[in-house]
Design a protein around this nucleic acid. Sequence first.
DNA 1: AACTAATATAGATGTTTGTCTATGTATAAG
DNA 2: CTTATACATAGACAAACATCTATATTAGTT
Lengths: 117, 117
Amino acid sequence: MDYQNYVQILKAMADPNRLKIIDLLSCGSLCACDILEHFNFSQPTLSHHMKVLQNAGIVSARKDGKWQHYTLNEEFMTSFKKDTDLLLTSDDQCICHSDADCPNCSSGKVAITNEKN
Amino acid sequence: MDYQNYVQILKAMADPNRLKIIDLLSCGSLCACDILEHFNFSQPTLSHHMKVLQNAGIVSARKDGKWQHYTLNEEFMTSFKKDTDLLLTSDDQCICHSDADCPNCSSGKVAITNEKN
DNA sequence: AACTAATATAGATGTTTGTCTATGTATAAG
DNA sequence: CTTATACATAGACAAACATCTATATTAGTT
């Protein structure tokens, strides 16, 4: 799996305020000023958070006159859940399979989830 | 949902090395020295990372002689996926429902996913 | 008892990050 | 054209964080 992208997403989510923004957007699109009303921090701080969320591919923005409308990316929601499953599942893509000295691989502990081999 | 706990988990995961540790442990339990072999950082650094993962409830440790065996918590894996689903779904627990001025609530955009009301 | 191996703790350090104030830019309204 | 509104950018700063070296602790071994 693509660690870099997944870590960037996790970092973007790992802030209580940005998490709240994601939660807000999960109800539907919102413009910056509507989001800002839910917080105590300044407008530039929100601007910064929205940029972090956009850079991580979590949120996309659409400009409409003076307003910026933010929407949760459908692709993020599906791929994040998929990557999480991939991470927490012992499968062929497990990192230890590329390591000949891995105790779990050599001891056969992974065999149960690797029956096709 | 419990933001505090979820954010703590996200913060613990939002580091490339700790993410790799989680991936390693998803194949089965490992002791500290086995984990350390996969990295270039020092032993105290690993000790620090393992503590972060334990404090977040992601990993639990069992001492066996000189060795510390680390295991991915089953409870973390299930609750993390559940919380993620909860976050990314517009449902009754959506944060905006506690806010009378929320544009999405007042405009009825959420109605589709809230048919029982 | 002395030694070695596995891990933890303490303290220092450079980097990242969340936040702020001040200011710039773009769009609409009067 | 001036003014107000919505948002972005620049730069500063304190707190959090990842890492290191040095040292302590714990448990086997000789």
